[in-house]
Every structure is written in C-alpha cells, then in structure tokens.
Nucleic acid binder design. Sequence first.
DNA 1: CGCAAACTTGATATCTTTCAACGCGGGTGG
DNA 2: CCACCCGCGTTGAAAGATATCAAGTTTGCG
Lengths: 236, 236
Amino acid sequence: MLKRTYAVSRPEQAAVRRLGSLARLTEHDLHKIEQAAADAHFLPARTEIVREGAEPAKPTLLLRGWVAQQRILPDGRRQIAGFTLAGELFGRNWSCQERALTSQVALDDIVLCAAPEAQPGSGLFEAYERERLAQRLQLIDNITRLGRMDARERVCDLLLELLERLQRSGEAEGNTFAMPLTQECFADALGLTPVHLNRTLQACRRSGDLSWRSGKVTLHDPIGLARSLGRRSNRL
Amino acid sequence: MLKRTYAVSRPEQAAVRRLGSLARLTEHDLHKIEQAAADAHFLPARTEIVREGAEPAKPTLLLRGWVAQQRILPDGRRQIAGFTLAGELFGRNWSCQERALTSQVALDDIVLCAAPEAQPGSGLFEAYERERLAQRLQLIDNITRLGRMDARERVCDLLLELLERLQRSGEAEGNTFAMPLTQECFADALGLTPVHLNRTLQACRRSGDLSWRSGKVTLHDPIGLARSLGRRSNRL
DNA sequence: CGCAAACTTGATATCTTTCAACGCGGGTGG
DNA sequence: CCACCCGCGTTGAAAGATATCAAGTTTGCG
C-alpha cells in the first residue's frame, strides 16, 4: 500500500533502478532523470507511437508500461522484434537515422518522457551505451529463439529474459511479474500461432515450469529452467 | 582479367565503395582506409576470429570474403545471426562491451585489417554510424524472416538482401554474385534444415526465381521478387 | 583415380498451422 | 439487475510445413 503510493509519486523509480544497475549514477545524473520524468506523458494502450518508415522517435525513457517494436507484412502478418519495458529506453539511437526501422506500439497504458541528455564520460552516458548493447543482445537472442528453438523453448526463454529484465528494474516480485500481453501478442513475438502458443503454455503449466493467470506470470524455477535451456544470463 | 588484377592490387576497393556509398568521404578519409588496408591479414576459411563470450574483436574492416556471426546452442544447434561481407565492418561497437555477443567465423578465406579511427564529424565517422544502423536493420529483417516467413520467402528475402549489399560494395555483377556459403551454412542462417533448404532451393530454381550453380547465385528478377515478397529496399 | 565434402532423394515422423466452434468474463445498455 | 456482446482464451480435427533418417550421387581436388 505504502509501496504503491511511493511508486506513483516517483514515476522514475523503474528507470533509476535500471539505469543505476547498468552504470554508477551520480546525484547529478539522478537529478536529470527526475527532472525529465517531471514532464511525463500518458498514452493509452494500442497507441502507435511511431510508424515504421516515418520519422523515428527521439530518445525516450519509458516510465511505466510496455512498448513493442513491430513490423507488419503486407498481408497482415505481424512480427514483434522486441519489447521495451518500464525503466528502459527506446527511440532513435543514431544521429544519421532518418526512418524508423520498426513501429513502436504501446501494449499497455504507458507513461514516457524525453530521455535526459548525457555528457560523454558521465555515468548516464555509460548507462545509455550499455542499454544499447543490451538491446543488441536481445535482438540476437531473439534470432536464436526464432531460428533454432521449438515452441516450448521459445516460450520459456523469452519469459526468462523478461523476468530478468523486470527484476533489474524492480518490477518483479520474486519470480512473479505482471504480464500485460495478450497471448496473441506473445505469439507474434515468438513467431507462433496464437492457437499453438496456447497449447504450448498449457503444456508448460502442466509440466510445472510456469503459471500464467489473470495477468501474472510466475516461473517456478527460473535458474533450473535457464540451465535446462542452455540459457546464460547477465551477460553484460 | 584486368579487373581482377586491379582488385587484387587494391584490397580496400570494396570497403571504399561501401563506405563511400554510406557517406561522402574526403581524400583524407580515403587515405586512412588505404593506410589501414596496407596492414592487412589473411585468415583461412573456418577460422574462428572471436569466440562468443570472449573479448570482442576490435573494430575491423573486412576487405575480402565473408564472416558469420553465430551462436552454438549446448546441444550443437547453430544459428547464424548475420553476415559481414567484403567492404563491411564488424567487431566491438561500444566502449563498454566486455564480451562478444556472438562468435565471428570466417566462412571463406578472408582478408581483414583494423578499421581506421574516425573523428566525430568526418565522413568516415558518419559512414560508421550508418554501418551500425544497417546492421541493426539486418538483425530486425532477420527476425521478421525467421518469425513470419516460410522457407521459400526466407530464402528469397535473404538472397535479395545479400545481392543488395554486394551491389553496394561493387561485389556483384548485375544480378549475379559469388556465393561462398555451403547450403548447410545458409540453412543455419535461415533457421532451416539443410535438407529442407535444398528442396526449397530446387523449388525456387524450378519456378525461375533464381539459379545457384558452382558458387554463383543469380536472381532473375530481383525487383519483381522483392515486390512479391513485400520487401522494401534501400531503407537507409 | 579415389577420397571427402557437399549436394540430392525418398520415406516417414513430428511439429505447427488452419479452420471452426465453444466458453468464459467483464463491460454496457436497456 | 439482467441480457447481450465482444474480446480473449480454449478445444478438436484435419491439413500443411518442416524435420529426421538413411541412402545415393555429384563435385572438387590431391
């Protein structure tokens, strides 16, 4: 109860935790984050923040909710290339980028603000660099999932990644986290059909790997699961 | 004949063409590339240049041949996340990177050299930024391929990407290019089995989309093929 | 010429998709 | 308050795509 109030009154909490876990932040850095978060914007679920091919978003800090990077093929197939979670960054990373490589879509009701500028050499700057590196790692992990894992492995591997990221920004409670995604979205991230994902999830539940009820996911033994998948963690 | 001799005596040619197509290079930039290429190294096919998790490679210019970024799962499955072609860059992109995210493997006999340093603001610096952006685009394209395309679409889409890149660095002749990859490698990039890739290639040949004989690939109608796949090109 | 690696083929098993229907629950208007 | 509706999850049966296994066949090269 108290905790919830605290979180609401400090919308930048997840971002501070995440960036602080990537690099040592000074008081000055923290102040800049707080200042940026003071000018936050709310967007409802399903908002398309950026459309693929259009002007890319400026560097943005996601304070609350989840955002997906997605592509739509001409015949309507959708692929989600990655997620941005509360506390993480998205948006243009390179000065020369003229067009967004993917659409950015709010999967949830979200709150975001402009990412504060960082001077080279500052802790914040280093955190941004590590964040970009983490994004690259996630893309490569996704390629490995889609290319060489079967449905059960894809489901577990992605849930492990999400748990790890949410723990880093303090958004998980133990091995449980709030899952705002619809099964259809999750399937589009995993390259599966909603129907097949549904059956795969049931198999995972029956084998005791996870539970997913009323928007909460619990991984019952993340460490053992990661080992059985051959997934290495914390590789930054 | 003359052309071949010329290429051998100027090993940096592909790199100059590619980087020059990404940004306007000054005489000074060209000179730096030439200088870097003067200290080139040869590595035979199958050399593992960097192992995943080890110290990442320094920024490197690939002057000749192809390099793959690959992951090996504990049970031996392999996924190729992307390729570096002659004229392109690979290696550490971020100052904070301590471990390589993938192995780097020579698919071919290759020649490489250290990438010349670039001052912020120079044409070379901009070319490097665009190169990183192109790499990110390729990763996302790969995710879309693996997640939402069937075998025939994956094959054609990747070959179109390769043709486009090779044309940019002057390594293609019209719609034909030298393909140093074994079908097994190609399958590992596409998330397919070698057997299934083989059958898919035969179907593509029969339908007149491509020919692939003795290490040469020709796409008979790249533009029409790209359109039929819904693939947009030159998005940088 | 002969070997080894790469490519090809056929038969079969497994995984995943497709299609169509049903159930459940939460919101909404009557 | 209840009936209705809609989005989401679930189920079954059948079709389609891809993997697996095991054997040839070709190719390049010493």
